[in-house]
Simulated assay, not measured.
Amino acid sequence: MRLPLILAAILTPAVAAGETFQRPIPAPQTAQAELSYLAASVIMLLALVAVQWLVRRR
């Protein structure tokens, strides 16, 4: 029973040691992403106008 405990105590620091944190490099925004954002913005505005129109009619 002692041998596994001693072995675990010896090997645990080696396993627990990690590499240093490296900041992620942000990817540049692509034309596809800009187009998707534009489409989502237009749809959101249309939805807000539709809600305003429905609420005003009430």
Rank of each mutant, 00 (worst) to 15 (best):
P4C: 05
I10Q: 04
A27F: 01
L45C: 11
L54H: 09
A50F: 10
R56H: 12
S36H: 09
W53Q: 12
S36R: 12
A9D: 07
Q22S: 04
A27D: 01
I6N: 05
R58V: 12
L45G: 10
A50S: 09
M44Y: 08
A27T: 00
L5I: 13
R56S: 10
A16I: 08
T12H: 01
P13G: 03
P26D: 04
Q22D: 03
R2H: 13
A9K: 05
M1F: 14
T30I: 00
T20Q: 08
Q52W: 11
L38N: 07
W53K: 12
L48P: 02
V55T: 10
A16Y: 04
A33W: 00
V49I: 10
P26K: 00
Q29P: 03
E19R: 03
V15R: 00
R57I: 03
Q32H: 03
A17Y: 07
G18F: 03
Q52V: 04
R23C: 00
A8T: 15
I6G: 04
G18S: 06
Q32G: 04
A50C: 01
I25W: 04
S41T: 14
I6L: 15
I43E: 14
A16F: 08
V51C: 10
A50T: 06
R56M: 07
A47S: 08
L38V: 05
A17L: 06
P13E: 06
A17E: 08
L11I: 15
L38M: 07
R2G: 14
V49G: 06
L46W: 13
Y37H: 08
A17V: 11
S36F: 09
V55C: 07
